[in-house]
Design a binder for these strands. Structure first.
Lengths: 216, 216
DNA sequence: TAGATTGTTAATCGATTAACAATC
DNA sequence: TAGATTGTTAATCGATTAACAATC
């Protein structure tokens, strides 16, 4: 599989392809053409073929793409078979929800446990995984060479814990704290879920509609 | 304020500007130039000026932008002062986390309450807001002309509840179900938070780094 | 006034779309 | 073989960047 200088736009479309292909597979579809896929996803067939061709030749002229093997290829590209290790930092409602509701976190990764600062939850468990004292998170990351930290602590604690994680050599932070965390030069990858941003995009469009109606 | 044919890229940058300006304001900054702002956000000054100029003239030559008034302008554009009404559909861990942790949901909107299907939570409350039987959500939306539904139900219930909400005339759905929900022609706005997509982007980059290292 | 910095027009760059030869 | 559909090259479109006159 090649991987040369892929644009962000392409990368962000890959998980959507994967979801769609999972869906097609679960409905028993065996093959799909870029044309059909495009119509189902609201993309042009050209774009789909361009996107895939960034990574290799996954189709067959006159036939299209085999759903199952394309799905595996894209899973491969996205690293889903690499068994990265992950921990949860912040075992509150949000962290608990993520681990409990979204099987993909536990199934797709080596989930090693959770960390929290509150004495009343330390020692308990989430979906069978222990909740440790957050005081030990740095050592734990070092010892287990943890790849990904899911950061779901309150905003106030975000930067301090980030510093600890970076210091301990974490490779990636999935950031739910609604703050911009800073990781310095050569720091880990950071992917943030900014809930408020998403909601504001929604209200932008509501406001837009309201304004358009008012004008009439 | 004008609003003509704004590209998606621009719209998605607006909440980031708002966050940054809130931050500057809280640190007591009074003015900011596109140049400084650009350096702090990793954008070019040109792009920042272009973005703002989609909506009006908010700056002053030789001075820059007044942090506080720019912040208000962008808030206005994003509809933050419009007091849209919202309900939570699905009072599980995730929904509870959203309402409890993210003040902006309760502070920025008329939050009217939560709905769930489980008898043991109906009648209880989240942060002082009642949890109603989800069986009545359609009537509630109709009666209160609810603008936004925050959809945090299990994947299996997602489409059925969407149908109920659409039928009742909901204007926007903030979708956390990790599924593509379909709302039909002239349906509400939908903004989805696909947790898995975000995590996959992270592992894509991890895999990319690993591959690059292997080659060396 | 001189310096700073905007808003906007023009130039560049990159991403999407169209076209088509290759081939299953 | 004929029809379908890919992978890729070229054309188009849109978004970002650069430049600069206007002006605070």
């Amino acid at each position: 599989m090649k991987r040369t200088n892929i644009s962000n736009n392409v990368i962000r479309r890959l998980p959507r392809y994967l979801r769609k292909l999972d869906d097609l597979a679960s409905r028993g579809e065996e093959r799909i053409s870029s044309d059909k896929l495009g119509r189902q996803m609201g993309l042009t067939p050209s774009q789909i073929r361009q996107d895939f061709s960034c990574f290799g030749e996954f189709g067959q002229q006159g036939y299209g793409y085999n759903v199952d093997s394309l799905r595996k290829e894209i899973g491969q590209i996205l690293g889903t078979y690499r068994d990265y290790s992950a921990i949860l930092v912040g075992a509150g409602n949000l962290g608990t929800a993520l681990v409990q509701n979204f099987e993909f976190i536990i199934e797709g990764y080596s989930f090693l446990g959770a960390f929290d600062v509150r004495p009343e939850v330390i020692g308990k468990d989430i979906s069978g995984f222990p909740i440790y004292d957050v005081a030990g998170v740095g050592d734990f990351v070092r010892e287990h060479k943890v790849d990904i930290a899911i950061l779901t602590v309150p905003r106030e604690a975000a930067q301090d814990l980030t510093d600890v994680l970076v210091e301990a050599g974490i490779r990636a932070i999935w950031n739910f704290t609604n703050t911009e965390i800073s990781v310095g030069e050569n720091g880990p990858l950071v992917e943030s879920i900014h809930f408020a941003d998403s909601l504001l995009v929604l209200t932008y469009h509501l406001a837009e509609l309201d304004d358009a109606n008012k004008k009439k």
